[in-house]
Computed example of a mutant assay.
Amino acid sequence: MTVKTPVSPPLPNEVDALLRRLRMPYVRHAAPEVLAIAKSQGWDPAEMLRVLLAEEAARRDQATIRMRRRASGLLATIASAPHH
């Protein structure tokens, strides 16, 4: 038995422009797939919005951690430390 993944249509131009303006790149990236799944499964609009905002928050957290690690030089210090 094969499960079909819903087709992810592109975001409408107005929605894409608003997400760019609000600087929400992770929502822009995830939205087409999440919208297709939400439509095919009959999600409540609030659930769809929750999923998109949770994705944005999680990706921002990951990006912040990567940025702080690079800024601290911690990875470079650990990589160059002698191994015993």
Rank of each mutant, 00 (worst) to 15 (best):
L19R: 06
K39Q: 05
V7H: 03
E47Y: 07
S8F: 01
L19Y: 04
N13S: 13
R23L: 08
R20L: 08
V51M: 04
L53V: 10
R59I: 03
S72F: 04
V51R: 01
T77C: 07
L35I: 03
M67Y: 12
P12Q: 09
P12V: 04
V15H: 04
A31L: 05
R28A: 12
R70G: 08
E33C: 00
I78H: 10
R50V: 06
A30D: 03
K4C: 02
E33W: 01
E56M: 03
A58V: 04
A76M: 11
R68H: 08
A81G: 10
M24I: 06
M24G: 05
A81R: 15
L75P: 02
A17P: 07
P10K: 05
V15F: 05
T64L: 15
E55R: 02
P12Y: 01
Y26T: 05
R68P: 01
R23G: 03
P12G: 03
R60H: 07
L75Q: 12
P12T: 02
R66H: 11
V27E: 01
M67Q: 14
G42E: 08
I37Q: 00
N13F: 06
D16Q: 07
L19W: 06
R70W: 10
Q41W: 03
P25R: 05
A79G: 14
D44P: 06
R28K: 15
R70I: 11
Y26S: 06
E55V: 03
D44E: 15
L53P: 00
I37G: 00
R70H: 14
R50D: 11
T64M: 14
A57I: 09
R50M: 05
P82F: 05
R66G: 05
H29V: 06
H84C: 10
R50P: 02
D44Y: 05
E47G: 04
D16A: 13
P6M: 02
H83C: 10
T2F: 12
R23W: 07
R66T: 10
A76K: 13
S80R: 15
A46C: 09
R70Q: 12
R68C: 05
L35N: 02
L22S: 07
T64C: 11
L75D: 15
R66C: 07
T5V: 09
R20S: 10
